[in-house]
Design a protein around this nucleic acid. Sequence first.
DNA 1: GCGGGTAGCCTGTATATACAGGTCGGTCGC
DNA 2: GCGACCGACCTGTATATACAGGCTACCCGC
Lengths: 255, 255
Amino acid sequence: MTKAVKPVSGEARHYIRIKEQILADIAEGKLQPGDRVSSESELVAAFGVSRMTANRALRELMFEGVLKRSAGIGTFVSPKHLDVDLLQIRNIADEILERGHTHKAVVVKAGLMKADANVADALELTLGAEVMHSLIVHVENGQPIQVEERYVNPLVAPNYLSADFGRMTPHEYLTKVAPITAFEHIVQAVKPDRAIRKYLGLKNDHPCLRVFRRTWSGEAVVTCALLYYPGAQYRLEARSSKGPSKPVAILGEKQ
Amino acid sequence: MTKAVKPVSGEARHYIRIKEQILADIAEGKLQPGDRVSSESELVAAFGVSRMTANRALRELMFEGVLKRSAGIGTFVSPKHLDVDLLQIRNIADEILERGHTHKAVVVKAGLMKADANVADALELTLGAEVMHSLIVHVENGQPIQVEERYVNPLVAPNYLSADFGRMTPHEYLTKVAPITAFEHIVQAVKPDRAIRKYLGLKNDHPCLRVFRRTWSGEAVVTCALLYYPGAQYRLEARSSKGPSKPVAILGEKQ
DNA sequence: GCGGGTAGCCTGTATATACAGGTCGGTCGC
DNA sequence: GCGACCGACCTGTATATACAGGCTACCCGC
């Protein structure tokens, strides 16, 4: 009696197809922030799936922060912002790929340098010790979204500079070499200097979030990095584990 | 024919109960990283739910990074769990007093209002419900350092407005009335509007950190607040609990 | 004109059922 | 004895169905 729709085999699963379609519509601008997305029953008609499948696609996109839903009203595209979790460290390339977007890393600089007082302090090395340094701009769908200035402890990851950052982000490489056992995040709002503005394509008065991150592997500091994010588009999130799941609009923002 | 289990009404939904049970077992150490978690069918038997419900609980915990699943093998507690402890909520008055400075709170507004869509959503109340609202400027040694705009759930703290904010900060009062069991922080860098600039005594292009904070006591949202800090002067810190203690200068800053 | 009730749409949750496919251990046949 | 098959168990995906409850727009009666 049931339609016995085979759950496809090699191809994408139904709920993934729905998610991809919605992400594509957003990427192409067919769906703008605030726009209403097809309701579950409309998706049922359009894709020939059951409501549970449509529900799953929409629910997952909501958890991923792409959509906002409210019972009785409908489902809407969230205002565009990128979320970063303050209490865990994620690979920026993964985050971007999960949103269905393309990621590219542009290596501006990579080389050796002598640690000045701040760097030596941060990496717990002696003044003047040789450290590795890289400056990378991360680009999502052609738009720069993060400047990453990184200093790496050569005692922990001596071959850092020979990694191919086009294929593997510094973070990815370093966690492979030395798994993270502890981290520290310090967040500030800053006026970006001219170089950062240039890399991110920002206007003069656009505020930036600056995250100073250090990671440890065992007793040793693996690396420290300054991460610059273009201001209001970015939100850093921190939740206690029992905390909520559903994204909520920040007060004072439209919609 | 079907069992017609009512989806509960006031209480937690079934899949939430399962998630809470698993999280509790992990918290109490009954489940260690790497341990096998009950399979879906075992949960079906234990909780009297359908497999789809058990599946949802486990799948969400997987997305949240708590569990790892693999078909044919089973479900296991994730190894990582870099402790999510810090970025704790502190009372700004305590921080200031610890620095040996004086703290003063200036109450700009305090009163009742009807919740608009965003406030209702944030406090998990219905649209138009009456909520309490306060706008306070915190002053350290005569200099304003935080604007705190707060909305309070009257079901949790009905007497909020009669508290004396000169003697006890809103945060202090609220934690006394309803201990915090969960929180959420969302951090952004923004250009402050004129009112905020005025309260903080800032120039036009000075960036601000804006922290949107919600706190829970049990299932209820106690309060949500927008906190504005003058940009580079303020740092928000988050550390894994195994992390470092010694403060370090942020790279790029003098001294 | 205006206020209240209701029908209809939407999401949230839950159930029972089904098939696909991975993993593992035991058994049977050579 | 050893290898191949098979069945048990697990997750992954999908369907049809049901009821609860929020929200809106429309209509009807006063």
